[in-house]
Structure formats: C-alpha cells, structure tokens
Design a protein around this nucleic acid. Structure first.
Length: 573
RNA sequence: CGGGGCAUAGCGCAGCCUGGUAGCGCAUCUGCUUUGGGAGCAGAGGGUCGUAGGUUCGAAUCCUGCUGCCCCGACCA
C-alpha cells in the first residue's frame, strides 16, 4: 500500500473525551472514529487489524472442528419469549418493531436463534456433538458505553455454541475450546490468563473468562502467589480463617456514637481496631424467607460479594439493598447504627466474622454501638457463609500461596450452559433407545473488537501503538525520504516495496510528497508498524538503508542489497 | 437511574463573569523555499457559537426548557 493513496488519519492532539490509552491511540492513529455514544466507524487502518484478529479466530475455530454459520442480527421476539429472556433481559436488549408492528430485538447474543436452528436441523444423537460459530455484529444497549471500542454498544463478537447428548461430551468440547482460546490469544500475542468465573444468571456448571492483564481493566482478578490459580473476584472463595475464635475478654457495653455513621468514623472517633468492627447490610429477602429483609455481616474492612450473597437461598435474586425508610421502620435505627444484637430478621455472617471476638457493631439504636460483642455469649451464632470479596493477602483457595489482585479486561468467556435453553425451547434428539433426550449446550465468546483495544492497552509507548506482528495493520513500513524528488530513492523504495509485497509481506510505503521525515516517522510509529526501513539519498550513497523494529531502542544500518533478505529474516512469521 | 461537568471551524481550546455581531494553535487549500525527527514565509477557505424559546435596541455571552456528550457511582449474557 502506498501511503500517498491511503487514508492516513493521524491526529497530533489527543481528543479530549478519550480516557484510556487504547481509545486515545485508536483515535490518534486513525483507526476508528466515534459516530455516537458506543458506536464507531472503523477506518481502513483499524479495519485491517480487526480483520486480522478475525482471521486468527476463524482459523483456530476451524482447526478445532467448529463450523462457521451466520445468523441474523435482528431476531424475532417469539424465540426470546420461549427462553424467558424477553422479560428477563431488561433495557440492555434493544427492542424494535417492524412495519407490521411485530416485535424484534437486535441480538446481544444468539442462544435462542442457534437453539432454534439446532432443534430443526438435528434429530439424532449420531449427529452430535456439533459446534457452530459465527463472527458477527452484536448490540447491547449498555448503560454507560466507555473506553472507546472496549465497551461499546455495537461490537463484533465471535460466538460459538456446542450441542451434546451427554455432559461428558460437553466437557470435552469445553476443554477443547479452552485450549483453542489459549492458542488464539497466544497467536495474537496477548498477555492473558484464563480465570475461573461466575456463571451469572445464565446458570450452568462451569465457566472460565479469558482476561488480558491491564490496569485499565474493569474486572478484579484474584491470583495465587503459589500456583496458577486465578479467579474472577466475583467467584474467588474466601476461606474461613484457620485460627480459632479468640476468647471473650470484654463485657458487652452500649456506647454513645452519635457521629459515627461509617466504619471509618467509628474507628477514628472511638479508637476501635477496624478488624474488631463489623458492618451490617440489609438486603431484600427471597420469597422462601419469612422476613422481608436479611442482614448480612462482614468485617469492617471487607466488602460484601454481591454474587455470593445473591446465591444464598434466603436472599432475593437479583440482590437489592434495603432502602433507608424500610430499615428505620423495622429496627428504629438507620444505616450506621445496625448490628446483630436484638435484630428481628435472619442474620448471615461471613466466615471471618464467625471467628471474631470482642467486636463492635451497631446497636440497632440510633447513634449507639455495642462494643465487646461475643458470639454464643451475648447472642447465638447465626448462619455462616462465604459472602465477602477476597482481599490481597488472603490464603488462596487452591491451598498454596496467598491472593494477589490484578485488573483484567475480559476478552473471552466460555460457559457450560447445560440444558437451560434446550429445555426451555424443547430442543431434543433421539437417543440410542429411540427416546427424546434434551440437549446439553455450551457457549463460547470472544470480543473481537475488544481484543483490538486490549492489545493496544498492553502494547504502547509514548510514541504510540506497538503492534504484535500477528495483528499489525502492516508489518513493514518503508519510509522513503524525498521520494518525489530523488530518482534514486524512488527507484530503490519502489523496488524493495515490490519485492517484499511479492514475497507476501504487507508493506506500507510512505511516499507522501512534501511530508517531512519527522512527520513520516512519527506517523509510522503512532500506527505501530513493527518494522521500519528508511531509504534516503544519504543511505543510498553509502549503500545502506536504516532499519529499526518498533520495539527496539536503536536503529541500525543494513546493506541495501541485503534489505529484502534482512526483513524476511526479521519477520517472526 | 443518582451525582458532577461540558457543548464555539475536522481536532485542541480562548472569548461568556462585565451583552455591541467570533478568535488562537493544529489540520486543510495555493505559491515559493525546505527534506534524517511532527519545516518556514506569504496568502486563502471553513463556524445558523448543540437546539428551542425568553429578556434586550442588540445575545456565543444573561434566563428557561430540551437534546447530545464526558466523568464518578449504581448496573453489566
């Protein structure tokens, strides 16, 4: 490609609304432009990278034995009614009506459509297992699109769905997808980790997320320092402290704490150790609970894990915090003065809280706390559960090492769905005995557009993007200085450009007239082209070109007549 | 949805407080010079100042409604 004929849309200044580095660089390098909130144009340069990611995903999926299909972006409401998600999904599902007033949605995912397809096309267990995928545009009406294409409303996703007549078969395909995902992200050149994940409202048994480690990530991942254990913080188990509960040494006393509404204030004003405090949160109870609310207690310095809490049978799903009026009506005191003593509703305490002695908590009397509370002396021990987020330094649930927490960008997710959709939509095959058997299902997603942003988050410097070779829009940049004026430069640059292109290398020849050397080099660096050759009169006089890899600190002179061989040798593919 | 902020040329911004008919840098176009790290000089084009209304002789500027966007939070198969 000749730069003089290519849409190079680089910006010297950073658009003010771009927050994260990948968004800034995608705009500055001229890869994307915003059309509206969460909606982007992909310019030629950006699309080249996007297509390369797609190609790698497609090749590895095909190698795994999956077959590509293409489903419609617009889906009829009837299928979503069948699965029950028309009601469940909420405002993130963009619903539209056609001219006949029939209801449709713009697909955020395709479980319903694929299950419908499979129940029509597959009749026998002999046709299983099968794994079908597509690479297609999805739409989710995100509350808050942000970070450019990292969290956009319209995006490209690779979604695969597998169908099975047994859970063993599902597990096999799940494992195959796990290793396929590792191959895909290895090839792209990302620093990523598979992590244990929560299945969310989708249900099912097993789930892993693939996270690219980056400080701008929106998820907290818990790693073990002693093994390769990794789990989304939503999922990571907080073990019970190994020690026994200390003996009670204090009497329970009622203390005036008129100005202590938060744990921090309590600690500051009353000299209480934060590890001797407990916070009490009221959440809406489930139907099977007689009370309207349930009290959840975690140590003062810990955070409630809403996913874990939501799974308790006593707690309503989705988790909802009690509003202040209801709390006051129930106990006569507001948030800030709540605790386990004399509470008329069920109490569930965290494993850490069970081991606490002589602790302080709200007295359920406005402006008062009890200090020196002890279980089984001052009040019976309530139900104990793991309901908090793990924190840095906790023992790892794998048994080795301690927890360390890092930020991750979720670029892939694999799920075992089990029979959830097949059951709701009556997708069956005939088994060996000629009986209808409900299918088991798995689903496997990769956020293709998000991968592009994540790769930039991990590979950049003060000059711009540094593409991993596998997804670079071009692999080699030939910067021809004074191209339009020097016959020698023009001749040699053209010759190298043509021979490399003929050898299958994707080259961008910067032949732009009247663009200064500095500007040409700055643009190629901003765009992140992995290899750069500078051809100039000065070099030609000495029989050399200059070579520099985007990651290298220093440039080097190479023999002009060896340039093609040198480059072919430098390419890692 | 709650809180905060912004909206003036393609991009980055000033002007607004104190009303008088819009400006700077980058980018773009023309000419000349320049070409190894985002060139120089001279000239040019480009803005219903988000939108609707109000106050006023006069509104980018003051007031009100609306819309869009950004940030924090809540939310997120």
């Amino acid at each position: 490609m000749r730069a003089s004929q290519y849409l190079i849309a680089t910006l010297k200044e950073t658009p003010s609304d771009a927050e994260v580095i990948s968004h800034q660089l995608m705009l500055r390098a001229g890869m994307v432009r915003k059309v509206a909130a969460g909606l982007y144009n992909w310019l030629p340069l950006g699309l080249r990278t996007l297509r390369k990611v797609e190609r790698i995903v497609r090749e590895e999926m095909d190698k795994s034995g999956a077959q590509e299909v293409l489903m419609p972006a617009i889906q009829p409401s009837e299928l979503w009614q069948e699965s029950g998600r028309w009601e469940q999904y909420g405002p993130e599902l963009l619903r539209v009506k056609d001219r006949h007033d029939r209801e449709f949605c713009v697909g955020p995912t395709h479980e319903e459509v694929i299950t419908d397809m499979i129940r029509n096309e597959i009749q026998s267990y002999k046709q299983l297992p099968t794994n079908l995928y597509q690479i297609q545009t999805k739409f989710r009406d995100e509350v808050r699109p942000r970070f450019g294409v990292m969290r956009s409303r319209e995006f490209i996703m690779k979604d695969a769905y597998s169908f099975h007549s047994s859970l063993e078969s599902l597990q096999q395909t799940y494992d195959l997808m796990h290793s396929t995902y590792c191959k895909i992200f290895d090839r792209i050149g990302l620093d990523y980790r598979p992590v244990l994940a929560d299945n969310g409202s989708i249900g099912g048994n097993s789930s892993h997320e693939f996270h690219v480690l980056a400080s701008s990530g929106e998820d907290d991942i818990a790693f073990s320092t002693g093994s390769d254990f990794a789990a989304n913080i939503e999922k990571a188990e907080a073990l019970a402290p190994a020690c026994d509960r200390g003996a009670a040494t204090q009497a329970m006393t009622l203390v005036d704490t008129p100005n202590a509404k938060t744990i921090a204030q309590l600690v500051e004003q009353h000299g209480l150790d934060i590890e001797k405090t407990v916070k009490t949160l009221f959440v809406v109870a489930s139907e099977e609970c007689e009370a309207d609310f349930v009290a959840l207690m975690v140590r003062g310095d810990h955070d409630l894990n809403e996913i874990k809490a939501e799974k308790l049978p006593e707690v309503a799903e989705p988790l909802e915090m009690a509003d202040e009026d209801s709390i006051r009506k129930l106990v006569g005191a507001g948030p800030g003065s709540l605790g386990p003593v004399n509470l008329p509703i069920p109490v569930i305490i965290d494993r850490t809280v069970e081991k606490m002695a002589d602790f302080g908590a709200g007295a359920n009397i406005e402006g008062k706390h009890y200090f020196g509370i002890n279980w089984e002396r001052d009040l019976p021990l309530p139900k104990v559960a793991d309901i908090r987020n793990v924190v840095e330094g906790d023992p790892s649930p794998c048994g080795n090492g301690t927890i360390s927490i890092k930020r991750g960008i979720e670029v892939g997710h694999i799920f075992q769905l089990g029979k959830k959709y097949a059951e709701a939509m009556n997708a069956t095959v005939l088994d060996e005995n000629g009986k209808a058997a409900t299918l088991d299902m798995g689903c496997y997603g990769i956020g293709v557009t998000r991968v592009v942003a994540a790769a930039i988050e991990q590979n950049n410097d003060d000059k711009g993007i540094i593409w991993p070779e596998a997804i670079a829009p071009f692999t080699v940049a030939i910067v021809a200085l004074k191209y339009e004026k020097s016959d020698a430069v023009q001749q040699q640059a053209d010759a190298l450009y043509e021979s490399l292109t003929a050898a299958g290398v994707e080259v961008i020849l910067d032949d732009r007239p009247k663009v200064s050397p500095g500007a040409k080099m700055a643009d190629m660096e901003l765009m992140g082209i992995p290899h750069r050759i500078v051809i100039s009169d000065r070099g030609i006089g000495a029989g050399t070109y200059e070579y520099k890899a985007r990651r290298d600190a220093d440039k080097q002179e190479i023999a002009a007549d060896q340039a093609e061989a040198f480059i072919l040798n430098a390419l890692s593919v």
